[in-house]
Design a protein around this nucleic acid. Structure first.
Lengths: 142, 142
DNA sequence: AACCTAAGTTAGGTTATACCTAAATTTAAA
DNA sequence: TTTAAATTTAGGTATAACCTAACTTAGGTT
């Protein structure tokens, strides 16, 4: 429905990162990750669970819902494709590329990102050596 | 100081456009342009004048301050360079390019835009045939 | 010169995001 | 079983954006 705010994206990214090992991300971990109080984190996560983006197990932690994963995976793809393109093709410093990617990641369109991805030859890793999520049907046939 | 909000950028763009002919843009013109009430426009313009981005002549209208012009000119350049690049190099439809440009224009960095501009050969016009503000020292020597 | 009317502004209210501290509450470990 | 740490709730603040209704001003008409 209503699209995500910048902060909500930050929270989802934190959940995404923190649950790469473990099953659940705790409010405290997320609070530390984002530099806010535990109460604020808890509150925002509650809102995100009401929007259906995370699954909350009260007093335990949160994980991404299917919808939440789809959303944030797309944004992570946007970030990593863009920063790779900016660094490799536009010849901008990696730092600069990453900073700009962070600001625009949630506003980039699939068409533009897929086009950059194609030009780059569908890279599997960003310059930080992190995985670039596959685009379907950009990198992979349906 | 505090950077611009998206809405503030919209207001500055409206002032930019509306004052291309005339000296002052009225609250009503801006309100119509943005689809808000006159009261809301007046209020926001007051805030922008407190931030030093527009010069307000109460009961008459507003114009961009030097700072406001510098800010919005940069954003307009970002928009037009990006949309040109997306259309010409990334081969995305003009509509798509413009839409995405609108969303990211205020977050693009100078380095990235200058790099796109260089690759395009420092074009003077965007695909809508509007002027692309010169980058200094990108398009023009200082 | 007084007087309308349209344009512009102010006053007061609403909603939403995003933060906080302090006070509960729950879980789990000693 | 007690207690400490983690978590949540309650209650509060600030800011951005919007609104309607009431008021003010400027400028053209008589």
């Amino acid at each position: 429905m209503g699209s995500l705010t910048r902060k909500e994206v930050e929270y989802l990214k934190a959940v995404f990162d923190l649950t790469s090992n473990r099953d659940l991300a705790s409010s405290l971990d997320i609070a530390n990750n984002l530099g806010v109080s535990c109460a604020t984190a808890s509150e925002t996560l509650k809102r995100l669970s009401e929007k259906g983006l995370v699954i909350r197990e009260p007093w335990k932690g949160v994980r991404l819902s299917e919808l939440g994963f789809k959303e944030i995976n797309k944004i992570v793809r946007n970030h990593r494709v863009f920063e790779t393109y900016a660094h490799k093709v536009l010849l901008v410093s990696l730092n600069e590329a990453c900073e700009c990617a962070r600001r625009i990641e949630m506003y980039l369109s699939e068409e533009i990102v897929n086009s950059m991805c194609r030009i780059l030859g569908h890279p599997k890793k960003c310059p930080h050596n992190k995985d670039i999520p596959r685009g379907i049907p950009c990198c992979v046939r349906e």
